[in-house]
Each structure stands twice: as structure tokens, then as C-alpha cells.
Write a protein that binds this DNA or RNA. Structure first.
Lengths: 208, 208
DNA sequence: GCCGAAGGTGAGCGGCCGCTTAGCGTGCCT
DNA sequence: AGGCACGCTAAGCGGCCGCTCACCTTCGGC
């Protein structure tokens, strides 16, 4: 119904890169609808209606309904990846960088839950080509987190037996926030980010 | 195309409680279809086809397509809850019981990934009444895990600041296995169960 | 003041959706 | 042998789906 919550970090309003204005309104409407009902249960009439337009207007800016999902997924993954890259490229030790990465990644999944839900859970609705493109971005996400954990193991900060498995678990934990997080619930995105950073440091055996 | 993998534990073939035979075949077909494509993208013609029947046959055994999802969700949650209850009621200390609970819960989500996917991710497709019934089961699932963690804190085995938040994270970690686990991947359900039990014990600060 | 491009609409097409109905085959009860 | 309950199918209904098309505005350039 509005663009209220803002705990993600620097960005004031996302999707500003999408132009013209009508195309952005349609995309924002699609994000909301896909997050609420899922891609397949959302109709093009619903999307256009939320954007205050007729059903036909959608096809001036997007070739198909799937292209909308593709664009959302692409932009969302780019954003998630850049959040992780910023944290991973920080100057502190592995412990601090992992805590940064997890807390900011979680803050995004909680604060931008609507977007994150679509990005993380509607992947299967994409066709083979778009799907492959997104999966490649996911591998880069995985590599960023794994890199920090490997650094920590090499420096002796972390005690991890299965680096790949632990990386998977850390990412899985963060991503699933988008499924259960409730804006009206008792926790703020910042609080969940702090809690999860602590839990993840425990998982890798970092000194407190 | 068959019921191959078996790492869940005692059960040989699930859904045996569903009778008559045709109703069970339809239900198994629905589980496969829902897990592959999602509830809304699955057609009644597809379900009936997989079960080797005509579309109309479905409505002899089930009132609507949603009733199929409801039955699947109900049986799946009952099974998940009974797995956790068995572990929680064990005789060991909290550390052992939590490790048991996590490893068996994860084994189920990995080994019975098809079912778990439907159970955990298609909840929103249910109507209000069925949804409320399932949400009640989820609260019981949460209570079982929280109970073990509270026991461990009381006995001094665990060092946990936020019991509710940690419970949420532990369950979230286990449940998300159903999203990423790949039967053709490098890990067996048993291996993931063991890895996750170790990670969770670290999360609660249990002595190794 | 005219013109074409850009962005929008109302109506509607072909098709697939969930679900229903009339009727058919089969096997058990008497 | 007759009857009938049960499980199932073929056909199809009403409706909504993604998407298209013919047409209508608005507006900057000359």
C-alpha cells in the first residue's frame, strides 16, 4: 500500500533505475502481487490494476509476464550480490566481515521482504535461459560468503570442518528470513540481523 | 518416476494410511506435481494423468484440488511433528536430544524433499480454515524445539540469549533444506543431518 | 496548424482452467 | 439371474487466463 519501511541501508527508494515511470510502477506492482500470491497465481490484470492502468498497458513496457519476473529477479540478485560484496571487501578481519555480511544480507531480506520473497522463491517460474542467468548470480553469491569463511579458516579465526556445507547453511539461514519475517512481528530487521550475525559466528567457531 | 530413496528412518512407504488405492495414487501424483511446479501451476488434468486416470476421477475421491493440498499438508505436518516429538521425548540430555531432533528433522526434509517442499512452501495456497489448522501444527513444532532449548539452558548445557529467536533460526535452517536439497547432489540426507546437528549445537553454545 | 511518435484504452480472441454431469462397465448380494 | 452400488470416463460448461489489435489521446518539432 506504500513504501514505508527503511532499514536496508543507504537506498531511499529502490527500482529508481527502472524507467520510464510507468514501467517502474508496473514493476513495483508486480513485486507486490508476486510476493503476496506467487507468480502463477498473479494475473496480468491484477498487476496492471495495482499500477492504475489497463491490462493492455503492461505489454507496452514488457513483452510477457515472465519478462517482469526476470527483470525483478535480475535487479534483486544484483542488489543482494552488491550488499555481500561490500561486506566481503571490508577492511576488518574475517570475523568482522562475516558479521557484516550476514547482518546486512539479513537486513535486506527482512526489510525488503517483498522483493526478497520473489527473488528467492519464484526462480522456478523462469524459463531455462533466464533461470540459468540467475543461477550464475547465485553461484557468485555463494562464492562471496565462502571466500570470507575460507579467509577465517586460513587465519585461524574459524574452526570449520565442511566449508562448502557451512557456506550453504549460512546462506540458507539468511535467505529463509524472507519466508518467515513478518513486518508486524516483534523483531525489527536490525534486530534479526544482529541475532543472525551472532548465530553465524557461533556456527563457524569464531571467538566471541 | 518411482519411490526410490529411503533414508528417512523407519517408514518403508509413506501415504499408506491413505485409502482406497486410487485415492492414494492421486495424492502421490499431486505431491509430485505440486513439488515440481507449485500448486497454482499444477492442473487437475496433470494430477489425474500422472495417476493414470481421467480428470473427472479426481473428484470422486476429493472435493476440490485444494482438498488434495490440505490432506498432503496435514499428513506431512503430522509426520514432521511426530519425528520431532520422538526426539524431544528421548532419554538423553538436552544436547543429545537437540542433535537427534535436528538430524532426524533434516533427514526427513532431505530424503522426503518432494513432500517437504509442498508442506513447507505451499501453505499460502490453502483457504483460511485449513491454513489456520496447519498454522496450529506449526506452533506445536516450534514448541517442541523451544522446549529442548529451554531444557538445555536450564541445565546449563546451552548458552542462549534469545531462546525464541534461536528456535526460529534452528527451525528455519532445517526447513530450508527442502528448498535447496538436490537428490543428485554431493550430499546424502544422513550427511546433511549430521552436519546440521553439529552446526545447531554450535549455535546454542553446547559443549562439543 | 499539421504530423508522427509514444503511451494509453476497450473490446475481445483462442485456449486452458476447475469442476459437473450423464452414462457405462464391473463385481458383490440376494 | 437380477439389481444396484461403486468407480470411472467422455464430453463439455462457464469463466478467467495471457495476450493482441484497432483506435484514441497528448505533445514536441517545424
Amino acid at each position: 500500500m506504500s513504501t514505508a519501511e527503511e532499514t536496508t541501508g543507504g537506498e531511499i527508494e529502490p527500482w529508481e533505475e527502472v524507467t520510464p515511470d510507468a514501467a517502474r510502477r508496473l514493476l513495483v506492482a508486480a513485486v507486490e502481487a508476486f510476493a503476496e500470491r506467487g507468480y502463477h497465481a498473479t494475473t496480468t490484470r491484477d498487476i496492471a490494476g495495482r499500477a492504475g492502468m489497463s491490462p493492455a498497458a503492461l505489454y507496452i513496457h514488457y513483452k510477457t509476464k515472465e519478462e517482469l519476473l526476470h527483470r525483478i529477479s535480475r535487479i534483486g540478485h544484483d542488489r543482494a550480490l552488491s550488499i555481500l560484496r561490500t561486506a566481503a571487501a571490508g577492511e576488518g578481519d574475517a570475523t568482522g566481515r562475516l558479521a557484516d555480511a550476514v547482518s546486512s544480507f539479513v537486513r535486506w531480506h527482512a526489510g525488503r521482504r517483498t522483493t526478497a520473497r520473489v527473488v528467492q522463491y519464484e526462480l522456478d517460474a523462469l524459463g531455462p535461459d533466464a533461470r540459468a542467468e540467475i543461477l550464475d548470480l547465485r553461484r557468485q553469491v555463494d562464492a562471496e560468503v565462502r571466500g570470507i569463511i575460507e579467509d577465517g579458516v586460513a587465519s585461524g579465526e574459524f574452526a570449520v570442518l565442511d566449508v562448502h556445507g557451512t557456506t550453504l547453511a549460512v546462506l540458507s539461514l539468511c535467505i529463509d528470513v524472507a519466508r518467515w519475517f513478518n513486518v508486524d512481528g516483534p523483531r525489527t530487521p536490525d534486530e534479526v540481523g544482529a541475532l543472525y550475525a551472532d548465530l553465524v559466528l557461533r556456527m563457524v567457531g569464531a571467538a566471541k
